[in-house]
Design a binder for these strands. Structure first.
Lengths: 217, 217, 217, 217
DNA sequence: CATGAATGAGAGTTCATTCAT
DNA sequence: GATGAATGAACTCTCATTCAT
C-alpha cells in the first residue's frame, strides 16, 4: 500500500459524483495552479486545458477560490493523517522492532516520500497558497493540532525517556525533525527536482543527521 | 554592524535617485506583495497605499514585474553576499578563535537572524515569487552558485578534514545545514511568527542539532 | 362572483394541460418577476423556487420571454373584458337602477377592486413590462381599442346626453376616469400597500371625485 | 425661467467635475435605460453609444447601479423641491391673485409640464426603477415626506377653510390631486406620447376636473 | 516629475438555452 | 415528461499601462 497517488484516489473516490468533465477540470487546475500560482491562473486557461467550456467550471465550483479549496483540502488530510494514524503510532509501542527512533524515522520518511513524489503539484499549491488563504491555514492548523501534534508529542516523550532523544524541549525536537524531513522533500522535489539525487542515500543521511542531531550530549 | 535593516539601506542607497514618491511606492509594494502575493496585488492598490497617482508607478518602473524585480533583486544579494564575503570567510582560516564549526554556525545564524528579522516581508516575497519567476531564479542561482557555494564548500571541507564534520558528502552537509538554518527562520518568522519564541535558546538548540547531526557515526 | 382570483382560474383553466410542475413554474415566475422585474430574474432562480430542474422550464416555454407572455397575456383580457362585457354594459341601458353614472362607477370600481386585490403581482408585472415589450403593448392595444373603448364611448355619450357628464370631449372623460380609477388601484396596492387604508371610504371619495369632476359647469 | 431642462442643468452644474466622457456616459445611459430598462441594459452598450471604452464607465461610477443612482437621485429633488419651495408656496398666502385653488393648480401644472416634457426619459427611468431599488424609494420617500407633503397639507387646509375644497380628508385630497396631475403626465408622455394632444385644452380640462371633483357635493 | 482620465484586453461569473439520459 | 450537465455568449468589473496635461 505504498503507492498512494492521491490524485488517483481523489479521482477514484469521487467517481461516483465526479463527472468526467469535472475530473478534467480538477486535473487541469492542479497543473496550472502549480505552474503559475493560483492568482496568476485564469479560469479560461483552466477551461481550455481541461477541454471544457468556461461556464462548466462554475457549474461545479461556485467560485475560483472554491476550486482551490476543493483541491487543497483533501491533501492536507491525506498528508497528515496517515502519518500518525492510531495504527501507525501504536506499532511503535507494541512492536519490539519499532522501538528504535531511527527505524521510526525511516518508516515515516519512506512512507511520506512516496506520497510526496506522487503529489508534487498538489503539495506545491498547498505550500504556496497557504500563505494567503485563511481557510487553508485554518484547515491545516486544525488537522495539525488535533491529529498530528498529540501523537508526535507522545512519540518524542517516549524516545526521550528511552534516552534515544537528548535533553531538548519536546517542541524543539518536533520543529527540528519536521523541518529536516519537510525540508528534504522541498529541496528534493521543489527547489532542485532536476538534480541527480541518490534518494536512498539522501534519506539515510537525513535519518542519521536527525538521529545524531537529537541525541544530545 | 548588526542592525542592518535592508529597507533602510535600500532607501538610503537610493536616496540619490529615489524620489520620496518612489520610496513610498517601494514601501507600499513590499507591504502589499507580502500580504497578498504579487499576482493578487493591483498597481492601483499600491498607488493608493503609497499616496501617489496610478501613473506615477510606471514613471519609475516600466512594468509591474519591473517593480517586483527591483524589490527582490537586492535582497538576494544582501542575504547571500555578506554571508560569505571574502572578509567573513577568511576569518575562519586565519582567526584561531573561529576555527570551530560551532562558533562559525553561531556567528552565521546570529548575523543572519538580525537580517531576516528586519526584512521579513521582503524575504517572504522572495520565497513566494521565486517559484514563478525565472528572472528571480536565475539571479538567485547565479549568486548562490558563484558566491555562496564555493565558499561553503571550502569551509565544509575544512571542517571535514578537521574532524568536526563527519563523513557526509559535502553537498549533503550543505543541504542539511542550510535547511536547518533557513528552516528555523521560516518557522520562526513566517509559519509561526506569533509563537512565544525564546530565540536565544532556539538558536543554541539549532546549532547543537546541526553540529551533532553532522558529527557522523 | 366577486372572488375571482385570476391565479386560481389561470391554474384551473390550465389544469387540463398544465402539469403540476408547470403550475409551480408559473407561480414561481410570477412571484420573482414581481419582486425584481423580468430582466433581473434568472430562469435558474425560477427553477429553484419552483423546485424543478432548469431544463424543465424550457420544456413548457420555448424562451424566457415566452414565459412572460404566458403570464401577462391572460391578465390583460381578464382585467379588461369583464369590465365591458356585453352583459355588463347592456345593463346600464336596460336596467333602470343602473341609469346613474355614480352607480355605474361604483359597480365598476367595486368589481375591479376585488380583481386587482387578488392579482397584485400579476398586474405589477403587466405595468412594468408593458413599457418594454411590444408584444404586450400590442395585445393590450388590441383589447383596449376593440373591446373596452367602444363600450366606454357608448356609456360616456349616454351620460353626456343624460346630463350626468358635462361638456368634456369624450376621450378626455375616459382619460380622466380611467386615470382616477387605475391611479387609485396603483396608489392603493403598489405605491402604498402598507398604508392603513379605509378602502370603503376611499372608494366612495373617488367615486364622488370623478362624478363631480366630470359634472362640468 | 420655465425652460428648465434638467439634463442641461445636470450637465452644466457638473461641468466643473464632469469630464466630457462622463457627460456622454450619462447621456447614453439615460437614453438606453429609458429605452429598455436598467436591468436589460448592458454597460457595453452604454459605452458603445457614449463612444467611450467600457472601463471608462467604471472609472466614474463604481458599479452599474451607481450609475443608475447618479441619474435618478437628482431628478427626484428637481421634480419635487421647486414644486413646493418656500418661495412658491408662500405666494399662495401673500399674493392676492394666487388665493384661488384653480390658479394654483394651473401654476403648478404649467410649471411641472415644462419640466416633465424636458425630462421624459429621466422620469421614465425613475418610475420604472423605483419599483425595484430600495435606495431610490428611500430617497423619494425622504424628499416627499419632508419637503412636499407638509407644504401640500398647508395648502389644502388653507383651501378647505376657504371653502374652495370640500369635505374630504386632507390625505385623500392630496392623493386625488397628485394622481390626476401625475396621471395626466404619464398618459401624455409615456402611455400615448404620439396621440395628437391639444395640451392647452387638456390642461384646462384637468384643472377643471380636479377643481370640481374636490368641491364636494 | 507627477497626475489621473482613458483605454481595451481580459478577469471571474451568470445566463438562457440545448440535449443526452 | 423531467433532468441537470454542458455550453459559449454576454455580463459586470478590474487590470496594467499610456499619455495629454
Amino acid at each position: 500500500m505504498d503507492q498512494e497517488n492521491f490524485m488517483d484516489e481523489f479521482m477514484k473516490a469521487a467517481n461516483q459524483d465526479l463527472t468526467p468533465k469535472q475530473a478534467k477540470i480538477l486535473q487541469a487546475a492542479v497543473e496550472i495552479f502549480a505552474e503559475k500560482g493560483y492568482a496568476a491562473t485564469s479560469t479560461s486557461e483552466i477551461a481550455k486545458r481541461a477541454g471544457v467550456a468556461e461556464g462548466t467550471i462554475f457549474r461545479h465550483y461556485k467560485t475560483k477560490k472554491d476550486l482551490l479549496i476543493s483541491i487543497v483540502s483533501p491533501i492536507i488530510i491525506e498528508f497528515a493523517v496517515p502519518l500518525f494514524a492510531e495504527r501507525f503510532i501504536n506499532e511503535v509501542f507494541q512492536d519490539q522492532r519499532l522501538d528504535d527512533f531511527e527505524d521510526l524515522l525511516r518508516k515515516i520518511i519512506r512512507n511520506r516520500y512516496q506520497f510526496v513524489k506522487n503529489n508534487v503539484p498538489l503539495l506545491k499549491i498547498f505550500f504556496q497558497e497557504m500563505a494567503f488563504h485563511a481557510e487553508i491555514q485554518e484547515k491545516f492548523s486544525a488537522v495539525f493540532t488535533e491529529k498530528v501534534l498529540p501523537q508526535f508529542i507522545k512519540v518524542v516523550n517516549h524516545f526521550k525517556q528511552n534516552g534515544q532523544i537528548g535533553d531538548f524541549p519536546t517542541e524543539t525536537v518536533i520543529r527540528l525533525t519536521i523541518n529536516a524531513i519537510v525540508g528534504f522533500f522541498i529541496t528534493r522535489f521543489l527547489v532542485m527536482p532536476d538534480y541527480p539525487w541518490d534518494d536512498e542515500k539522501e534519506i539515510e543521511y537525513t535519518i542519521q543527521f536527525i538521529r545524531n542531531g537529537l541525541k544530545g550530549i
